[in-house]
């Protein structure tokens, strides 16, 4: 019996321009595993991720219906403390966006906003985040340099480390390796394999190959609908739906 960190029930979402980007999605996200959401562009994967930490509050959303239970509590409830939620559910974006601060400043940003002032705690968190994101050895000597000086791959791992420094419970990653070289990509993927022991991970991969490599659970999205859901690699080896098979085998993109 797997334990579900997040339970999504009949989630529908439409933007103010009228596009319905998610249509009655029901999906479980198990704890301590990598759940992969994949499918062609425009399928609603990013929209779903942004629902999980209420980042969609910033977008032009017209209606959201359904429930998203995080540890049994509905986070779509208007009374939700979204600030606390976003600390529990961290997010890494496709393009690495380092804040215009030092490396250390990026890492401690979230904690400082939360009111943490103790230097030792901040340093501790920064180090932990960097180590988990496999970046510590590369930057430990120059934590006070501007973060922008890092390479693209390092920046993306810094973004991951920045989320990890907050000790979230869930990590959302939206095509985190889409702009990275193969070496950086495998570093990130390796880090994720380590991380899933402690965290719940939701990953939107940038390719079917990456989906197949990383998935403990996989969900195939097409035009706002959840087409098929499967455990382990079964979606990639024995898809049940024709459209899943067509996509996995590269017959459409």
């Amino acid at each position: 019996m797997v334990e579900n960190k997040i339970v999504i029930e009949d989630l529908s979402l439409s933007y103010t321009d009228g596009t319905e980007s998610l249509h009655e999605i029901s999906l479980n996200i198990p704890v301590n595993a990598i759940s992969v959401l994949f499918g062609p562009a425009g399928g609603g994967k990013s929209s779903l991720l942004r629902c999980l930490n209420r980042l969609n509050d910033l977008a032009d959303v017209r209606t959201v219906a359904g429930r998203i239970l995080l540890d049994g509590v509905d986070i779509l409830d208007p009374a939700t403390d979204v600030i606390a939620l976003r600390r529990r559910v961290g997010m890494v974006f496709a393009r690495p966006v380092v804040l215009p601060l030092s490396i250390r400043g990026n890492l401690t940003y979230g904690l400082e906003l939360a009111g943490e002032k103790r230097r030792s705690r901040l340093d501790e968190a920064a180090e932990r985040g960097l180590k988990l994101a496999a970046l510590w050895d590369e930057v430990k000597e120059r934590l006070d340099d501007p973060a922008i000086a890092l390479s693209g791959g390092q920046q993306q791992r810094l973004c991951l480390a920045r989320v990890l420094a907050q000790q979230p419970e869930v990590i959302l990653l939206d095509e985190p390796t889409s702009g990275l070289d193969p070496i950086s990509t495998s570093k990130v993927e390796g880090a994720l394999q380590e991380l899933k022991r402690e965290y719940t991970i939701v990953l939107v991969p940038h390719s079917v190959q990456q989906a197949a490599r990383t998935a403990d659970y996989a969900a195939f999205f097409l035009q706002g609908g959840l087409i098929e859901y499967g455990v382990d690699k079964e979606l990639f080896t024995h898809p049940k739906k024709q459209r899943t098979e067509d996509y996995v085998e590269g017959r459409f993109g």
Binding site: N53, L55, L58, I83, A84, R86, R87, G90, M91, F93, R95, V97, L99, P100, Y109, G110, L113, A114, C159, R162, V163, Q166
Partner: peptide
């Protein structure tokens, strides 16, 4: 100031004012 900075700051648990105060205004 790039919108992405604001999104990232909010996603890290920043409030709107914290985001303005710490990122947007200095930039």
């Amino acid at each position: 100031v790039p919108q992405a900075f604001r999104t990232v700051s909010i996603s890290l648990g920043g409030t709107r004012w914290q985001t303005i105060r710490r990122i947007v205004l200095p930039q």
